[in-house]
């Protein structure tokens, strides 16, 4: 089975999908490790878990597990449930049925960014100026940094953790051997961070509407400018050849094969959507990319054929989060208004 955007069905009808109105802003979404369920982090303190199969019966609204808003959710790398963080400062493990147990609690802090590493089972959470890594039942603190951690990500092998903050990025070695952290400096506030899928690059989005990329091996860096808004969403393709970025009206990919993207324009393709892309998510295995717009439009793009198709029309509520199922046949999206969407791309 494969996704083929030249199939005329994509232009005639929208693909089958499940859409549920949850009535609370959606901050994040993730599929479980086994791909059978999908979780949405909601602004009323609940995490709504739906079956990935859009025809399967879905449970009703869930009870709040966090006080305030849930700010982040990722697949539990050690099971088939999820891990969530909230503005109540709690990090929770949620079983597939939604039962919550607390990992830890940072009183007065928000847990607003999470990363999970599948192979090592480690979970990283930002809380104030520090990052916390939970692994094998042990919690370790990395920090404090000079300012609040704005985003974080694991290296490919899970041996290091990168944290974005004012003035650049700090990379911590999180293995048993404790090495001094490495600093990658660039002035200003860095608001988003993604480590490339091959481990060679770290990309950040900055307050000044540009993106910054460091080569890990040489510790050299590059800057790409020209965005009309902050780039808050970055996504590397599975083969690490391209970095997708939000904040453009069409899919925008910087090529990292050969000499890299510096001094060259990015690859831009697809139908111009309504508004600017607010979230981008590269497909987990193939050359596709999903993009959500601040207008609510949702598109699927194919970098090989330079085509894109609509998965959902603009409705005035910005898409806030996207997630691919591990097999790449289902896409989850949430928006500011609280609509939970699961699209089935097999057609």
């Amino acid at each position: 089975m494969k996704i083929d955007l030249s199939n005329p069905a994509w232009r005639q009808t929208l693909p089958p999908a499940r859409s549920i109105a949850a009535d609370a802003p959606v901050a994040a979404t993730a599929f479980s490790r086994d791909g059978t369920s999908v979780a949405f982090a909601l602004g009323d303190g609940s995490v709504r878990i739906l079956p990935a199969d859009i025809a399967a019966p879905a449970a009703g609204a869930a009870d709040p597990v966090h006080g305030g808003a849930v700010l982040a959710v990722v697949a539990d790398p050690a099971g088939d449930g999820f891990v969530s963080g909230g503005d109540d400062g709690r990090l929770l493990r949620l079983a597939a049925d939604g039962t919550a147990t607390e990992f830890f609690h940072q009183k007065g802090k928000w847990i607003d960014h999470l990363a999970a590493h599948k192979a090592t089972g480690a979970i990283a959470a930002s809380a104030g100026k520090s990052a916390f890594v939970v692994k094998d039942g042990e919690v370790r603190e990395f920090g404090p940094h000079q300012s609040t951690v704005a985003d974080l990500d694991f290296s490919k092998d899970g041996g290091r953790l990168a944290c974005a903050h004012y003035g650049g990025v700090t990379v911590w070695s999180i293995g048993q051997v404790t090495l001094p952290p490495r600093r990658f400096a660039w002035r200003g506030s860095h608001v988003a961070l993604r480590w490339s899928t091959d481990g060679k690059f770290i990309a950040t989005g900055t307050q000044e509407n540009d993106i910054h990329v460091w080569r890990m091996a040489q510790a050299t860096d590059m800057r790409m400018q020209g965005y009309p808004a902050k780039v808050k969403s970055l996504s590397w393709t599975a083969d690490a050849r391209f970095l997708y970025t939000s904040s453009q009206p069409v899919f925008t990919a910087w090529s990292f094969s050969g000499k890299g993207p510096e001094g060259k324009p990015p690859l831009q393709f697809g139908e111009e959507g309504a508004g600017l892309l607010s979230v981008v998510a590269a497909h987990p295995t193939a050359e596709f990319v999903a993009g959500g717009y601040d207008s609510g439009e949702l598109q699927l793009g194919d970098i090989k054929t330079k085509r894109s198709v609509a998965l959902k029309m603009a409705d005035g509520s910005a898409i806030t989060c996207l997630a691919w199922s591990p097999d790449g046949f289902r896409l989850a999206a949430g928006n500011e208004r609280g609509d939970l969407l699961v699209v089935d791309l097999r057609r």
Binding site: P25, D44, A69, L71, W110, S147, T148, A150, S189
Partner: peptide, 13 residues
């Protein structure tokens, strides 16, 4: 920068 982050977070409630 903390205000930017907090205002963004408050809007998620």
């Amino acid at each position: 920068g903390d205000l930017i982050r907090i205002i963004e977070g408050l809007m998620k409630r």
